[in-house]
Design a protein around this nucleic acid. Structure first.
Lengths: 211, 211, 211, 211
DNA sequence: GATGAATGAGTGTTCATTCAT
DNA sequence: CATGAATGAACACTCATTCAT
C-alpha cells in the first residue's frame, strides 16, 4: 500500500478522479486511452507520463474507489452488536456500489487476476470484516462452529455475488434492498446455536426486491 | 430453444467441442477467430460457415456447456431430503465447473447481458433449484419465512459467488470442498424454525478449504 | 451476339430474370453471389453451373435488359419526321430506365470497360439512332453540317448524361419529363439552317422538371 | 466548407497529393488502404490519424481536385461574349480532366450520392456556369426561351456525359477536341431566335474526333 | 513536464470460387 | 444437373504504446 501510495502524485489523482465518471457508461475495456485523454483534456503523452500502462490506470482507479468505500463505510461500524455491524457493512457496500453506476461495479468485478495489486484490493474490507466477525464470536453473538476466516469469506463472497447479479442485470433492481434482505437471511446461518433456538426469523414473509 | 437446436448441425457441434479445450488456456476474448481456426484445423471461411459471428460461437459454447451440466447433475437429485438435493446440486455444479478449467468458468461468468441467449442460460438450473426448494418447503424441510424465489436466488448467487472467487484466484484451492462447506453453512439459514432449535451445526470445527 | 445467344439456355434466362428484381434496391456489387442464390432459391453450385463468374452474370443481365429496350422502344419509331423519332427514342429510353429502378440504371452505367461484351452493349441503340439521323439528314429534317456519327454520339451522350444525373440524384425527379425537355432543346441544334430561321423555339417558357 | 478547410492540415494535404497519382492506375475502390500507405510511405496508423475513414480520403481528394479546376479555369472566363466563355469553360474542364488521367476522371464521376460532401462537389462549377448563362441571356447572346437553370443543367450534363464517354472508352480519343466540337453543336441550341436565323453553322464538315 | 504524430500487428468479417459427392 | 461445405486472401479499421520535440 505504501508503495502504491508513493506513486499517487497530486496530478495523478486529479486524472484518476476525472476518469472515474467516464466509466459510468462504457466499460473500461471499451474506452480507449485516446478517448480518455480527449475526454479529460490531457494529451496522450501526459497520460503515459503518469501511468505506465492502461492497466496501471485500472489499478489506480480501483485504489481510489476503495479508498472511498473505506472512508465512507468503516466509520459507521460502531455498533455493539456485531451482527448489526455486518448488516451495516453490507448496506454501505451496496450503497457505495449502486451510487457509482453499473459500469464501475463491473470494473470492480472484472479483475484481471494476473495483477497482484488487484488481488490485494479487497484486503482492507477483508480485514475489517474479520475484525467484526472475530469480535462477534468473542461476544457470543456469532457462531463459533466455524472459524472467523471461513465466515468472513462466505460473507464477502455473498456480498460480491449479489453485487454481480445486480450488474449482470444492468442494475434493474434496487441493490441496497436486495442486499439487506439477502444478508438478513445469510446471517441466520451466523447465529450461535443457543440464539438460533429462540430466533423468530423474519417478522413477515417478504417478496424479493428484485422483480 | 428449438431454433437454436436446429442450428446445431453435427459439424457445428464438432467444432464447438474442439474449441472448448482452447478456452481452458486463454479467455474467450483473448483468443482470435484466426487462432481458433488454426488450432482446430479449419479455415476461417469454414468457421463463418457454421457461426455467423464470434459471439455466435460463444452462445454455442455456453449451450453445450449447459447441456453437460444438466445431463450430469440433474439425474442425481433424487433424494427425499431436499436439503440434501441442494447440497448435491451445489456439489455437482462445483465438480462440473472445476473439471472444465478456470477459463471455461470465467467464460460462463463473463456474461454479456445484451445477449438474450446468454441471459437465458441459467434457466434450467434456476427452474430445477426452484423445484427443489418449493418441494422442500412443502415437506417442511426448508423455512417458509422467505418465499422460494428469494431463497433460490440467494442459493444461486452464493454458488456463483463461490465459483467466481475460485476463478478469480485462478483455481488455487479445491472448489468442491469449498463449495460443500459454504453451502453447508448457508443451508443453516434455510432451516425452518422448529428444526433450527435442534440442529447441532457442524460436528467439528473445520478450517476453510481455501489456503 | 450470336455467341452470347448460344449461351442463353432456358434455365439461364430464368435465373437472369429472377435476379433482375434483386438489383432494384442494392447495387450489383453490394449483393453477393450467396445472397443472390438464396434469394432466387438455387444453390451456389447451380449458379456456377450457368455462370462462369459473377461478372458473367452481369453481362447476362445487361443483355436481357437491352433486349427489353429494343423490343419495347424500336417498334414505335415509325414517324415520318425523324426528329419526332429521336424524341420518341429518348422518351422510350427514359421510360425504360425509370420503370426499372435506380439501381438497375446504375448497373447499366457502371460499365466495366475491360469487358468487351459490355462495351458492345449500346450497339443496337447506336445503330438505330444512326439510321434515324441518317434518314433525317436525307429528308433534310436534320442538319448536314455535322455528319451522322457525330450527331448520333452527341445524342447518345446527352441521353446517358441525363440518365446518370437522375440516378446520381437517386431518382428524385421525373426522368421522362426531364428527358423530353432536354432533348427538345438539344434538337434545336440538330435543325438544318433553313429550318432554324423559321423555328419559334419552345412555345412557352418552361421550368425544368427537376426541382 | 470552413470546417473542411480547417481539417486540411499541411501533412494531410501532402498525403492527399501523394495519393493522387495512385488513382491514375487503379480505381479508388480497387486500391486498399494498406496499398496506399505502402505506396506513399506512411503507416496505416498514420493514415487513420489524418483520415477518419477511407471515404474521408475520397472527400479530401475531390476537394483538392476541385480546387485545381477552379484555380486554373475560372480566371480565364473573361470574354465579353458569354458563349465564348461557355466554350472556354468546357475546354478548361476537358483539359483539366484529361491532364489528370482516366482513373481520376472516373473518381470524380463515381459519386456516392449518400455523401453530402460529394453532392456539393459541383457547386462552384454550377454557380459559375449559371453566372455566365444568366449574363449571356441579359446580353441577348443566349436564348431566353428556357431559363438559365435549365440551360445550365443541360450544359453541365452534356459536359459530364462527354467526359464519362471518354473515360468509359479508356481515354482512347482526344477529349478536348471532342468536347470542343460537341459543345459547339450544343451551343447552336443556345442561340436566341434572331441570331439563329443568321448563323452559318460550322464552316466545314467535320469528322468526330473520336475514331 | 507536456505534446501528439507515428507505429503496425492485430481484429472480426466477407466473398467469389472450387470441387467432392 | 445439382449441391453446399470448404477455402483463404483480402478488407477497413483499432489502439496501446513510443519518442522526438
Amino acid at each position: 500500500m505504501t508503495k502504491v501510495k508513493q506513486k499517487q502524485s497530486k496530478r495523478r489523482i486529479e486524472i484518476l478522479e476525472a476518469v472515474i465518471p467516464l466509466i459510468s457508461q462504457q466499460s473500461f475495456e471499451e474506452i480507449s486511452v485516446a478517448e480518455i485523454c480527449q475526454s479529460i483534456g490531457i494529451s496522450i503523452g501526459s497520460f503515459y507520463h503518469y501511468f505506465t500502462t492502461k492497466n496501471d490506470l485500472l489499478i489506480g482507479l480501483l485504489w481510489i474507489i476503495d479508498e472511498d468505500l473505506v472512508e465512507n463505510t468503516f466509520p459507521l461500524l460502531t455498533n455493539k452488536n456485531e451482527l448489526e455491524n455486518l448488516k451495516l457493512f453490507a448496506h454501505g457496500w451496496a450503497e457505495h456500489v449502486s451510487s457509482h453506476g453499473i459500469e464501475r461495479s463491473k470494473l470492480i468485478s472484472s479483475i484481471n487476476p494476473d495483477n497482484e495489486a488487484l488481488a490485494e484490493r479487497d484486503r482492507p474490507a477483508i480485514r475489517k470484516l474479520l475484525e467484526i466477525i472475530t469480535s462477534g464470536q468473542a461476544k457470543k453473538q456469532i457462531t463459533t462452529e466455524y472459524d472467523a476466516d471461513t465466515l468472513t469469506d462466505l460473507f464477502l463472497i455473498t456480498m460480491r455475488g449479489i453485487t454481480q447479479d445486480w450488474s449482470r442485470r444492468d442494475g434493474s433492481y434496487a441493490l441496497t434492498e436486495r442486499m439487506d434482505q439477502s444478508i438478513e437471511i445469510l446471517l441466520r446461518a451466523f447465529l450461535p446455536a443457543h440464539v438460533r433456538a429462540k430466533a423468530k426469523g423474519a417478522p413477515e414473509r417478504k417478496k424479493t426486491a428484485k422483480q
